[in-house]
Design a binder for these strands. Structure first.
Lengths: 233, 233
DNA sequence: TATTGTTTATTTGTAATACAATTAAATCAT
DNA sequence: ATGATTTAATTGTATTACAAATAAACAATA
């Protein structure tokens, strides 16, 4: 950003780095409605002229926005706003929560209690069938049951069909699996019973019952996890 | 990254850009446990040597991680892993959901139904007092009641004291306010009644009742919002 | 001694430039 | 018309140099 008549103003506001300011200006293209998700952004060269910053600065900003899943860059094609929120940024952020299993299970509860409620409102017969199959497979597949466990919860999350929370719950379930794998808690019998109860409530399209069943389930998981956590410390 | 004996391997895996690979390697410092939240990272110069990339590439990666709230850079001091997940990345990501009010209200429901349930488990008398005051102020303050409305929900979210969801619900409430401000939906009387019901359930530390009250409240909000949304289209 | 002001040196921040790699689109050959 | 080839536009990477901020070291003063 060259020194010009705005120098004083720019300097006084600029606790922020240039690349941060550029990031905000690009976001502003969305907020102001000048561009929509899916639209092509100006090329780097065009942005350089408009924003009057150096290429490294511009590219730091674009790199940041790409990590946030807001834009997607393709060599030779250009840069585009994404259509929907991505799940990658969440999983990166969750690196900060490694080892804090209580934080993770509570975040899961926060999300899944609401998700199962909304799922009960709108679940389709096909989706119910997926859950049915999942539970049945879990009953037989003795060993690799954790992956079916996760799948069960993922199906419910997908049922709600909400981009904003989809990425987050996915990352959370994966993070939870990684961390709980070390603790090695397995209660197949109880898990299956709980899943059956949740399924039954969803089948009735009963939001309150679905909530109650999920609450009982996750409360059980939380108690086991936290008990083990204490035992290991 | 210089051409050396690993060239073939590097090339074959590298659909990803170098800066993306660097980003992952830095995250790996956390995942592997070599560094913890709050720890200082090596300086840029040290990282340049270890990772064998150019400075712009390294800085693109660090800029990305800073936007994700995973690291924080201070001139002259260095670069540090953050202690906890930040809210900024969420609000940036939500720029993609501008105008999609249904997506936002459903995301709010997903989160807040669970949050109020957990809040009922652990709310303190002081926090109840905050809610009490909030409702009372809302009753008198006729005009600026939307800000009190948001504050009510924020207090509940803060009660749960979970870093992972805190940033998300905050960004969601702000995004919701911005978007619903244009629609101009106001039902002060009903809102206050609902808030009273939620408060009452929280006071009893009754998770199920808290959920039910919040569900009724947000379901009402959703219906009004979606009805107005349809009417305007 | 303690306190304040000054200098220094370290680290991140910004810029300019050059070239590489990718690949959609244009061109050419069959 | 179809397939192969070339071209050119765009993002990706590297190098170098200098600017800005500021913690730490140091000096001056009370």
């Amino acid at each position: 950003m060259h020194n010009d008549q705005r120098e004083v103003v720019v300097k006084s506001l600029s606790r922020k780095t240039l690349s941060k300011q550029v990031e905000e200006q690009v976001i502003q293209l969305l907020v102001s409605g000048q561009l929509k998700p899916g639209d092509k952004l100006p090329t780097e060269m065009e942005l350089l002229e408009k924003l009057e910053v150096s290429r490294p600065v511009l590219r730091e900003a674009l790199s940041s926005l790409e990590s946030l899943g807001v834009i997607k860059r393709k060599t030779r094609e250009g840069t585009f706003f994404s259509e929907k929120i991505s799940s990658e940024p969440f999983s990166v952020m969750l690196a900060l929560s490694i080892g804090r299993i209580k934080e993770i299970i509570e975040a899961r509860m926060s999300l899944e209690l609401g998700l199962v409620t909304l799922a009960a409102e709108k679940i389709t017969d096909q989706q119910l069938e997926l859950l049915r199959e999942n539970i049945d497979k879990m009953k037989t597949a003795d060993d690799s049951y954790p992956s079916y466990d996760r799948e069960f919860h993922q199906i419910i999350a997908l049922t709600v069909n909400n981009n904003v929370v989809a990425g987050m719950i996915d990352s959370l379930l994966i993070a939870f699996d990684k961390m709980s794998a070390e603790i090695q808690i397995r209660h197949p019998k109880t898990t299956i019973e709980h899943h059956e109860a949740i399924f039954s409530a969803l089948q009735k399209r009963d939001p309150h019952a679905a909530f109650a069943a999920m609450y009982q389930h996750l409360d059980f998981v939380r108690q086991k996890i936290l008990f083990e956590g204490d035992r290991l410390n």
